[in-house]
């Protein structure tokens, strides 16, 4: 009796071509970006190309400039030199809220939630830009504003479902566990239905179980909601599993870029992480 006697199950249908990130165009193009504060150079001449629909990770030792790079893409910092384009539009001089309008969402390394508000209110704030009723309508509430609230409430409920937040829907977020807060922050970013989401260490301080849950959420969001992800993370195992492509920064310089397999064998990366004998 050998294995060939068993009928092989049909192969899953291959993903639609649009889901294949490699043939899509660049969503974010970072070209020769440098950033310095006074005499302190944080980024020098960094080039990145993030394709639409991919999960793109940035790794590197502490102080490599990973968060600063996200802050540049996000509009918190203006690069000293170079250009960042998003959807083929130059965005290196745009404000944070302008970029939010264009579909860039973000989570922070140390959480930036609205601590005294409920999970639902935090998620609804993610949809803030879509709320268009006037001040007078809000003061009257019934009619336009109420309908708007109902619609967004229903839309936010999808995010609650996707990230399994139903149990903490009405809880004050400041009192929830760190892992849950991280998930809510991710949910708030997703609720705005962004094109691009920047995740700054979304799994820092989590248990192994929470980390694998979070990876699953990131992947689901990426595939299901068609959102491009730029991710900073220190857990190399997870990075290798999750990413389509990886860039390695060291002291403000990009030292490698490629698929997880390429990165794991790259000598300059090993040198940056472990040091080399000279």
């Amino acid at each position: 009796m050998n294995a060939s006697e068993f009928p092989t199950p049909p192969l899953p249908t291959p993903p639609l071509p649009t889901n294949d990130a490699s043939i899509r165009q660049a969503l974010v193009a970072v070209q020769g970006v440098s950033l310095s504060f006074g005499g302190n150079t944080v980024l020098s001449n960094v080039d990145l190309n993030v394709r639409s629909g991919e999960i793109y990770s940035i790794i590197g030792p502490n102080g490599a400039g990973k968060t600063s790079l996200l802050n540049c893409i996000n509009g918190f910092y203006k690069p000293t030199a170079g250009r960042i384009s998003f959807d083929d539009k130059d965005m290196s001089r745009l404000s944070v809220s302008r970029l939010a309008r264009m579909g860039v969402a973000r989570t922070f390394q140390n959480l930036a939630l609205f601590r005294d508000l409920s999970t639902i209110d935090n998620l609804l704030l993610g949809r803030n830009l879509m709320m268009k009723t006037s001040f007078a309508q809000a003061a009257w509430y019934w009619g336009a504003t109420r309908n708007e609230e109902l619609n967004h409430r229903a839309a936010v409920e999808e995010t609650v479902h996707l990230l399994q937040l139903a149990g903490v829907r009405d809880a004050t977020v400041g009192r929830l566990s760190y892992g849950t807060q991280k998930r809510i922050e991710f949910g708030r970013a997703l609720a705005s239905r962004p094109k691009l989401i920047l995740l700054d260490e979304p799994m820092a301080g989590m248990t192994q179980v929470e980390k694998s849950e979070m990876s699953a959420f990131i992947r689901t969001a990426n595939k299901l909601l068609d959102v491009t992800v730029i991710l900073i993370e220190h857990d190399v195992g997870i990075i290798m599993d999750l990413s389509d492509r990886i860039a390695v920064l060291d002291r403000g310089v990009k030292i490698a870029e490629g698929s997880p397999r390429q990165i794991s064998t790259d000598e300059s990366v090993i040198a940056a992480y472990l040091g080399t004998d000279h």
């Binding site: 922070f108 930036a112 939630l113 609205f114 005294d116 609804l124 704030l125 809000a138 705005s192």
Partner: peptide
């Protein structure tokens, strides 16, 4: 009414975290 609509939610967002409010 104002405080249970997006107007109030924006104010409370600013109270809790200005940076995140800008991000929204």
């Amino acid at each position: 009414n104002l405080m249970r609509s997006h107007v109030g939610r924006r104010w409370m967002a600013i109270r809790d975290n200005e940076t995140a409010a800008r991000l929204m």
